[in-house]
Design a protein around this nucleic acid. Structure first.
Lengths: 242, 242
DNA sequence: GTTATAAAGTTATATATAGAACTGGTTGAC
DNA sequence: GTCAACCAGTTCTATATATAACTTTATAAC
């Protein structure tokens, strides 16, 4: 199990192969939070590699936010920060510290043929569409439409609602071995159509913010496309560059 | 000249000292675009360091977008991409390839006491405020208010308009030795006040997008805070995460 | 002139090694 | 019991070295 989405090997340099192998093993759940991964020395011995090569591979996963190194102690998973990083958007205005995660209600999940734009991005017609609504401060504030390729996420549409939870990327990782390593966001503004307005509890034609996101796994393959809409006046989007 | 904003040394590891030294020398204009920097070997010899240490330092500047390595050839500055990176925002909707840089009109520059919020971010009361207006497709689309600390940018307010140009970060680098390495952006929405509306050529109360940015130099010191406002319907903000 | 070939220089990958800095646990002195 | 010292294990920094992969320039062959 736990084949990563990346087709490992293909005679890549050793440090890249190790990086992908480690990412796959993390995805497979081989280690849990606050349990140390094998030390650099062990990884080197077991992989017939030098410590330098191991360190290069591990460092890449650290840079990507998957792992965390603690000097003198070991190398650990870094789930919380991982979540925070990929979820540091959509903070409500005036929401002080507000690291709280909004609740989310699944509206629908179904396998379908991808709309043309989505098919182009994901490189396949066979997708699963997820519609959900996120609440914040007891009011709906984000209506999302999410597309993931069926071949990577087969069975997702049949998962019990309970297991899906408010954050999708951890689910991708733990149940399907897909590690979302980066994403492109585009923020723009528009006005609410009938359906969106109803879901968000605002009037049709009111100003909304639109976030379109393409998410990529570690090898650069796009693994998700989503569009999210929320009332413009409650919106704040944060981004760190560089 | 060309003291970086970072206080070099302080018995940091050698690779960090070299990184900062190189950044300073780049800022000082020691090499121009498409002229190779000294090779890894030379830097090692001249700095009494090993090649591995040199490579680590250079790699950091590559990751930060300052330099570019070409296998078999050498290490080069990377101004164009640097600009593109820090300017990949504010792309107009429907602007196809649209890598074009909007023109910018300086409205005012003056030394002043910082508003409290700005002073808090920049850590000083003595700032220079720049107001400018950017045009795109012959219409104003971004009204900016920019604050930089006087101690770092002394003399900026007196520079001839000609030398300022449409992009500020290259000016920071070349004239003041300040390399903007990262930035935090916050995007939100609001409505135009009287002044903003007039500058943007829209009606007061119309929807606008607001981008607040804090920019940091390589050592993490904040070196600029700005707020930009533009008509919401013409707006599109892009960001890459991870 | 054009095209191979060679050579030198550069970055990229990989190994081996040593000691510093730090962590977490154990042992021993009191 | 408390505290200090020690120790094994870990990451971090740094060096030295060798080879591969690639680029650029010069040289030679035709």
């Amino acid at each position: 199990m736990a084949e990563t989405t990346s087709n490992i090997d293909a005679r890549l340099p050793a440090y890249l192969r190790l990086r992908d192998e480690l990412a796959a093993r993390v995805a497979a759940g081989e280690w849990r939070a606050d349990e140390a991964l094998p030390s650099d020395n062990r990884l080197a011995r077991e992989g017939n590699l030098s410590v330098g090569t191991v360190r290069k591979a591990v460092q890449m996963l650290v840079d990507e936010g998957l792992l965390e190194r603690r000097q003198g102690s070991g190398t650990y998973l870094r789930k919380p920060a991982f979540n925070a990083t990929l979820f540091r958007f959509f903070q409500m205005r005036d929401a002080g510290s507000g690291q709280s995660i909004p609740t989310s209600r699944l509206i629908s999940r179904k396998q379908m043929t991808a709309p043309s734009g989505v098919a182009e991005v994901l490189g396949t017609n066979d997708v699963i569409r997820i519609e959900r609504l996120r609440d914040f401060a007891d009011r709906p504030f984000l209506s999302e439409e999410i597309y993931i390729p069926t071949n990577l996420f087969s069975g997702f549409e049949a998962m019990p609602d309970k297991e899906v939870g408010p954050l999708l990327y951890p689910v991708y990782l733990e149940h399907f071995g897909v590690f979302v390593a980066s994403a492109d966001d585009e923020v723009s503004f528009g006005t609410a159509d009938e359906t969106t307005a109803k879901r968000l509890g605002i009037g049709p034609g009111e100003a909304i913010a639109v976030i379109e996101r393409t998410a990529y796994c570690i090898s650069g393959t796009p693994v998700e496309w989503r569009i999210a809409r929320g009332p413009a006046n409650r919106f704040r989007y944060r981004s760190r560059i560089g």
